[in-house]
Design a protein around this nucleic acid. Sequence first.
DNA 1: TTTTAATATCGTAATATTGCGATGTTAAAT
DNA 2: ATTTAACATCGCAATATTACGATATTAAAA
Lengths: 109, 109
Amino acid sequence: MGITKSDLHPDAYNRLASVLKTLAHPARIAILQYIINQKACICTDLVTELGLAQATISQHLKELKTVGLIKGNIEGKSVCYCIDENVWRTIQQTIHQFFDQEVNIPKCC
Amino acid sequence: MGITKSDLHPDAYNRLASVLKTLAHPARIAILQYIINQKACICTDLVTELGLAQATISQHLKELKTVGLIKGNIEGKSVCYCIDENVWRTIQQTIHQFFDQEVNIPKCC
DNA sequence: TTTTAATATCGTAATATTGCGATGTTAAAT
DNA sequence: ATTTAACATCGCAATATTACGATATTAAAA
């Protein structure tokens, strides 16, 4: 079908999956990494840096903005984007909570 | 287009994105969590537990097997699945490496 | 030997995602 | 006032994903 049956799963799983989905794209990872390295950036920088069309970059930025990982600040005719530290840390914790589980003692295999 | 321009991005980003994509589904998260809790499980358990069709569960298991997060062991007419601890830890490290970065001192915002 | 239980795989319909050209908006620059 | 630079959004076309019924396979059970 192409539609995820979210109603079958616990909210926590849906939320984690949703965040991971946003992060699960090389362009969005590249955008985040670039902003982290440069402390901030504008859309045009990313177009030059990543080699994707302006419309495409803008769309990825929107998705990152939607989950709250980045926030934009209008500066004249450009928009300065940077990481939202609070949201970053919240997501960081969620991810730690899942991946830092003990997975020892497999019953078979 | 619906196709990711992987050739534009560093391999490390493509790999990270690929792993995150596999994890970015509530059913697959639920499957992993169930296996972690029970130490192991068979496909039918998950069908009962998650309320998805057998074909669907089987497909999700295949994806998790493809990235190596789980491995299956044939036991009679059923297959016992469990977490591959080594792969789990490798992926854990990759993900931590990205999310544990310092994101301080935003330039704008 | 026939039946049944547990899976895997195939084919397909319904959605979702990705990328981009075209277009509109806004603020600085000329 | 006109031009230009920086974005956002719309509307597609090309792919990808999700879910499941149907069907095949295999091993235990009857």
